[in-house]
Design a protein around this nucleic acid. Structure first.
Lengths: 213, 213, 213, 213
DNA sequence: CCCTAAGCGAGACGGTACGTCGCGTCTTTAC
DNA sequence: GTAAAGACGCGACGTACCGTCTCGCTTAGGG
């Protein structure tokens, strides 16, 4: 694939704050690091959504982005971590956590949004998590940039609820995270039963009301 | 008769196409050599435990087992499904489900055993589940031969408890499975907090007692 | 390929002198050797002409003829010899050698016919001769059933001419064969100049008239 | 200046695509490693002489030369063409054509050398020519780098003789090549009669003296 | 005329080679 | 100086064919 293929992704070539070189052709020679990074992530994202994580390959990404393999090896430790960054790097803002004062309502709302997200792009999420099981670099990135931050947000909201007396003192909040979002991931990664808003409702109900008569 | 009666494991074996049960039609031609299958699974298991699922490769297994690659391609749809069969094929009997009459105690016991299993060989389990996210053949085998049977056993035990009045009528038993075992898988596959017997206890406690004051 | 595919080659199933079994399906069970032989050669010839000698494979021939590989191994020592027999076995009659009393005219006529044959199916002939260079079994068959008989016929006609005083006593007739037909094979197998009737004429002229002024 | 002047061997080397002469464009990227080419040809030559052309396999050559299969596929279109280059690439200088002024003597000398060469390594030559019948890439290399140059040299020598009045004006020189060297190849490729110096003498005698009384 | 042995289909199996793809490293050149 | 272009070793993929083997069916031919 020739480097001139970049011409159709025009916003990649000269969208930054440098009016110095006017519309130079995006081909050979040294490119600015940020350009390379963006082109790479864009190419990786295309491959990820079109063909799955198995297609996110240094080889293919380099060809599609007009970037050298050497550059990719310098910046990403594995193809999986590149795929991860291409996907999750842009979706950080979506995990807003509501706080209306009513934990149960807030949890339900958050879980509904989460389930909806998984229904849309659960396949990609599952592939990335799956790849992390055999890719330590990806696992590290996933843990640091995805798993832990989200757990923290959830635990913080739950801690507020516990402070407000809506959750018992002796309940371990981390465990709750596993029983709410973890249960959803279970249905995503080891599918047998459907993942739905009603499922989310039942998750909340079981914990808040208990399951004994 | 307990729900763990072995009679339900029969329809499990021949409800699938993967070569767990030979079930060869008595047609003409040379019969499949059973020792080939055994040598293959042994070699695959060695590789799986020694080097992880990435090393379970048709190439390596064929060389180690003294078996032709063609034979492997004929009987297993992907290296992952071969690894799966090598590992889980031998452990079917380990999922005995106790029924002492006390659900909570039984669930706790079962979860303790499950957590102990994951502490021993969780890495392998995680790798297999992870590989299934990008390997449809492996995903099918995993669902049919692992996920669904285990869910069924758990749900059957829970149904007995519900009949006995130990669980409320309106509780969805499938959801409970996700909140108990699924929570454990969550800690296995997206590690952030430790997986321990205490964790299992809290899972049960949260559900049986509820989390509200 | 199912054995019922043989039904469209109807002349293969029951064209011999056995009115006993009337129109039994040509499938399973023991077939008479001659049927097998004919079906095999027909399939081999099809493959030979359609795809070249590289496609004449025991595997493909067996599948196409509805014949077992074992049978082929029993009767033919190599795929090449099977191809040879499929092709040259039927063309034995074409090497008629005229004797009008005029050697030069007879040789010219024969060479014209030979060149015409090569122009039609020279590619196949060349492939078979080529394969014989690395297939001792084929080489033996070629020598015994093709090369030597044709040389003998030519030498016999030339001997008659020598008796008649049309060729000098001291001329070695075998050498003449190489300088007439061998020269044609040279243009077939190591192509650089065209193979034509004029070429044949020049071959004869050079030898009969000599090349010196 | 003799027709065997080396100046005509220059346009021979770069009139083809096969990697005899590197002729790399000065583009970017790592240059082709010449030692890789040498190791490859050495390994191929070993296999060719030891086990025949059927053993000259990309697989074996790659293993023996410590070279990647990909590299071989990149530079040689088929195993046969690799074998060809391994053998004939080094023997270009051996086809010196004498010019003492006496054509008949020169032809006899050249044919004696040629017959001697075939007696030594005729088997390999035959295998390569044979393989070319089913390998278009090898056929092209053989024609361009072997057949045509040698024909040209012979025709040039014969043209000198014709100029000198030693051969008749109306004799087609290309045809003579087929009746001299082609006759030898005939005995090599379709063996029935021995290939000897006396045979070469008779070839020359038949043409120069004619075969009629 | 039956019954058995031979002949043959189907096909599993170990090898070997094919041709492709991706990984990770290296080198060369151009901007 | 950085980064593109790309050669290279390595190893896995999936396919094809070879040559050998085992079954079990069927018919021919001997008793």
């Amino acid at each position: 694939m020739k480097p001139t293929d970049l011409s159709d992704s025009t916003d990649l070539s000269d969208s930054t704050d440098t009016p110095v070189a006017p519309a130079l052709k995006p081909g050979r020679g040294r490119r600015r690091a940020e350009d390379v990074r963006r082109a790479t992530l864009a190419a990786a994202a295309e491959l990820l959504f079109a063909e799955g994580i198995r297609a996110v390959t240094f080889e293919k990404v380099a060809a599609r982005a007009g970037v050298s393999k050497m550059t990719l090896y310098k910046w990403w430790p594995s193809p999986g971590s590149l795929a991860f960054e291409a996907y999750f790097g842009e979706l950080e803002e979506t995990l807003a956590f509501p706080d209306t004062g009513d934990v149960r309502a807030d949890l339900t709302a958050q879980l509904h949004a989460f389930v909806a997200l998984l229904e849309r792009s659960g396949a990609t999420v599952a592939e990335v998590i799956g790849a992390a099981q055999s890719d330590p670099e990806l696992a590290a990135a996933l843990a640091e940039q995805y798993v832990r931050p989200r757990r923290r947000l959830a635990v913080e909201r739950l801690a507020v609820a516990r402070q407000a007396g809506q959750i018992r003192r002796d309940v371990d909040l981390e465990t709750l995270v596993d029983q709410l979002w973890g249960a959803c991931y279970h249905r995503l990664l080891m599918p047998a039963e459907p993942l739905s808003a009603e499922f989310a409702d039942r998750l909340v109900a079981n914990l808040f009301a208990g399951i004994t008569p």
